[in-house]
Design a protein around this nucleic acid. Structure first.
Lengths: 348, 348
DNA sequence: TCGATGTGATTAAACGTTTAATCACATTAG
DNA sequence: CTAATGTGATTAAACGTTTAATCACATCGA
């Protein structure tokens, strides 16, 4: 009638030993005879003992919970991050408390402090583009770009950009349009700069979607058919959704992909392999990034004195930049032959 | 040198009153003089007092944390759910602990019990298609379909299906292909059945993508151009990603959308309004669903005796089915005129 | 004046865990 | 035989909060 949840003292009473002995047996810390230890562990199993997080947290000052701050959970990129963080954290015995900074400037800091008030032991944050992460006594792992000030670990966006650009250059594209969304994003700039680094012999232009939309309204056409007429045969986008936007815009203008134009994206979102043609993209190694970030964070947590009141030093991982992988699919192909695109080439 | 975090006793000592008085002043529960109460609250503010969740949880048996179980955080639909749940929960003073059932059968139950071990006060779950949610003493709000056994609240998928089907029928489409992914999904079946309910005078066929892929491999072509040749002019998909797959497949086969074929989806994912043509889709009212689910869950939590050991009764919301909204964009249009599609019509 | 009632605050216990300090006892060295 | 050492277990305090029970004191009716 009341087997709801046995606690240490109930276990101890049931076995006729002291509470401390039971605690020691289960944690393997104190000194006690091997056979009593086994008996205690067995009893704990059969009685279904599960330690109270609250009691433990109160005593140890550690909650066993990490916070995860994402700029916008609705953004299709972040779920994959969340998924991997959750997986690795669970494996390390931590729970994950989520917080959404809703892409607002103030909300990010508020989210951080709310998590701290809830007693998280550490925080993983993917910062809103270009914002500063406050210094706190709670260790914070930052996932942004390798050049971001207190960055812990991130994908090597620059190298990823270089790789996809090299791919397009090797296909013979002589005019390439780089399509970004927001120039204030560290990640997007790294990707664009990486692409440019491999396109010294190629004519490139860059457009930023937020600027276009500021002039022509949200969801406006990007005018890619015009760029195609001016001889741009490859459209390298900074993220898969933008690549999708470019791809459908060109397709519905009657331009065949990849015969007449190549398109590439970033992030390898779930649907990118199911569309027609499947999208060439650059993939982050999220499992690796999550592992590195959490390893570093957990170490920072453990090496911290509970009474320490100074701000936590930056959390640094064994490796700061994780290589990205180019995934070549059918949305990118050889540049149209000169004869084919002859009359479309610019007069300049 | 040690203002790290004042607690109740430090506050009490600083003010020269007892701990209980401080606690009462901050919670507004006991009896005490209004002016002392104010003095205490002021001091708490200026000293930056923040209550220890651990201490409170230990004493009250309530953690102030809810669990959220999602079948697959990587799925582009769930983030919007997570976002709204997090928003409403935060507003109600709860934190949200995430758990991923990774779309595996066993993982869902494991995730639930892990959350319970972590001491969550309640759980919101979006069940994996067709699975049973275990009965526990911890209240669980279920978001699936109105006909799912212990469902708390959900979108009215059936009515949504009816609406989009009515839209296509009104446009004059006489042959409509319904495209689902997995016939074991409650949600998808409700949407398909809803669509069929409005298409009694229309010829319909249904294909399930998992069955196609079981035969032809993941990411295989859906063969929609063939269906178009057989006179099917509208393709009603059970979710936006499938609509995207259909749209790009038809476009790259040279079929113009919406002139020669109409396409509709479900869920109004972020990119659905940015592609060309923008996608006609059916949108859930996630803010409303999250609010109803959490209101019901919080009430179930509060009406529960801590010592109660019986399984929690089903959590029911004020309203079980929340209407969906048809969002008409340019991917759906009038059925092609008979003259236009004449030679393509079937010989039967 | 005495008991009854009310007000404003305090005392003390309890939640479940961890862990330093201690203890009882046996074994061994000197 | 005594003291030192070691072993295996216990005692007790502490983490920070909530809350029932209690207390000191004043007010009031009779």
């Amino acid at each position: 009638m009341k087997p709801s949840r046995p606690n240490l003292s109930e276990l101890a009473r049931h076995l006729g030993v002291s509470i401390a002995t039971v605690s020691n047996a289960l944690s393997g810390k104190g000194r006690l005879s091997p056979d009593l230890a086994r008996r205690i562990r067995d009893a704990a199993d059969t009685l279904g003992y599960v330690p109270s997080q609250a009691g433990r947290a109160l005593r140890t000052g550690r909650s066993g919970v990490l916070g995860l701050v994402l700029p916008d959970i609705g953004n299709p990129l972040y779920p994959e991050i969340a998924q991997e963080i959750e997986r690795v954290a669970t494996g390390a015995g931590y729970g994950v408390l989520i917080a959404n900074s809703r892409d607002e400037i103030a909300a990010q800091d508020k989210a951080i402090f709310q998590l701290i008030e809830r007693g998280v032991d550490g925080i993983v944050i993917v910062p809103r583009r270009g914002t500063k992460v406050p210094e706190t006594r709670c260790p914070i792992a930052i996932i942004d770009t390798p050049t971001t000030p207190r960055n812990t670990v991130s994908a090597d966006h620059f190298a990823g950009g270089a790789e996809v650009a090299g791919h397009l250059a090797a296909l013979g594209h002589g005019r390439i349009l780089l399509i970004g969304d927001d120039p204030s994003s560290n990640v997007q700039n790294a990707r664009i700069n990486g692409m440019r680094s491999k396109l010294s012999g190629v004519e490139t232009e860059t457009i930023w979607i937020v600027e276009l939309e500021a002039r022509h309204g949200k969801g406006c056409a990007l005018g890619l058919a015009d760029w195609r007429k001016r001889g741009f045969t490859a459209f390298a986008c900074v993220s898969d959704p933008h690549a999708l936007r470019a791809l459908t815009e060109l397709q519905s203008a009657g331009i065949a992909i990849p015969a007449e134009a190549s398109i590439t994206g970033f992030d390898n979102l779930q649907w990118s392999s199911f569309i027609s043609p499947p999208l060439t993209t650059v993939k982050m190694n999220m499992p690796e990034i999550a592992t590195l970030a959490l390893d570093a964070l957990v170490e920072a947590i453990q090496s911290r004195e509970a009474s320490d009141d100074t701000p936590s030093p930056p959390v640094t991982a064994r490796r700061a930049a994780v290589p990205m992988e180019l995934v070549i699919r059918r949305s990118s192909g050889p540049a149209p032959s000169a004869g084919f695109s002859q009359e479309e080439s610019p007069h300049a």
